[in-house]
Design a protein around this nucleic acid. Structure first.
Length: 193
DNA sequence: CTTGGGATGGTCT
DNA sequence: GACCATCCCAAGG
């Protein structure tokens, strides 16, 4: 399995400008150990959420119990619950000038474990298996308990770098928000729109 | 294909 | 009591 040999990602990768990290997370690979099963997925869409300079960010109004992970160590997960139905997975990333910052993982494509993902999603339509932030957390069984956990060491949930060749990246405004639409902080790999 | 509304619950005012 | 970094389904073109 090529992805088991792929190296883990070190803190220095995440200790950079949040927007740069969002772009560079494209093509990185999420590994999830779930009930003895291995689920693997490749990141194909991200968004950057910064600190008190970013009105759309959960961190904009300062630290609270909910967003505390965004102020915590880089390379850790920030998982939150939205709309009463869904979890969203973020990776904490920021440079020294910022107190908080995280990259929302908006979409992935399945590499391994598709049958388990279908079961978790109660959905067999491959097109819509992992093409949204709430969908991919369901497909990978990511929830509250992963909030604050490190993604830089092998465990239930971590990231690896398969060292892919760069691909064409689509850059757009972030979506699903009412403010902060003027910055181009959403990054996608070729797929659809 | 697109649109519109309902479900659902934690957080903050 | 209002928001939400959402999803799903049903109805209409």
């Amino acid at each position: 399995m090529q992805f088991l040999d792929a190296p883990l990602i070190s803190p220095s990768f995440y200790f950079r400008n949040t927007v740069d990290v969002a772009r560079d997370l494209l093509g990185k690979v999420i590994v999830r150990q779930y009930n003895g099963k291995r689920l693997i997925a490749r990141i194909i869409e991200t968004e950057a959420y910064c600190s008190d300079n970013d009105q759309a960010s959960h961190a904009f109004r300062g630290k609270t119990k909910r967003n505390a992970a965004m102020f915590g160590p880089v390379g850790h997960a920030y998982v939150y619950f939205v709309y009463g139905n869904h979890f969203c997975l973020n990776v904490v990333a920021r440079d020294l000038d910022n107190k908080a910052g995280a990259v929302l993982i908006r979409a992935v494509e399945t590499i391994e474990g598709i049958e388990v993902m279908k079961a978790l999603r109660k959905q067999s339509n491959l097109k819509h298996l992992t093409d949204g932030p709430g969908k991919l957390t369901q497909a990978l069984a990511i929830a509250r308990e992963h909030n604050g956990s490190s993604l830089m060491k092998k465990g239930e949930l971590y990231l690896v770098d398969p060292n892919e060749k760069p691909e064409k990246i689509l850059i757009t405004p972030r979506i699903g928000i009412k403010v902060g639409r003027e910055v181009l902080w959403r990054f996608c790999l070729e797929k659809k729109e």
